[in-house]
Amino acid sequence: MTVGTLLSLAIGFALVCVILAMMLCTVRLLIGPSAHDRVLALDTLWMCTMLLALMLGIRFGSQIYFEAALIIAVLGFVSTIALAKFMMRGEVIE
């Protein structure tokens, strides 16, 4: 077994793990009994998407994915903050 096959096996394993994690997040997003459960699941889904972009960067050996990951992290933060603020202020005042 060469070094390259070891690394590509590891990348494949990690990709499968992260995709499974995204599926579990989606399940929690769909069944989540309350709104804050769904926001938490959505935030975790953003994080997993960022990790997926980073791993695809390693897999294809390209640096373009880094910028995608940075933008996904920033957008995830902003959208989660907006949703959490909305849960505290928006809906309850009616």
Binding site: V3, G4, L6, L7, L9, A10, I11, F13, A14, L15, V16, C17, V18, L20, A21, M22, L24, C25, V27, R28, L40, A41, T44, C48, L51, M55, I58
Partner: peptide, 26 residues
């Protein structure tokens, strides 16, 4: 070989930890 070994170990550990965290979420 040392770089490939380190990167593989960290990737496997990171993937497993990610999966465990979302298992906890579910």
């Amino acid at each position: 070989w040392w770089a490939a070994l380190t990167a593989s170990f960290l990737l496997v550990l990171g993937g497993l930890i990610t999966l465990i965290g979302t298992v906890g979420l579910l």
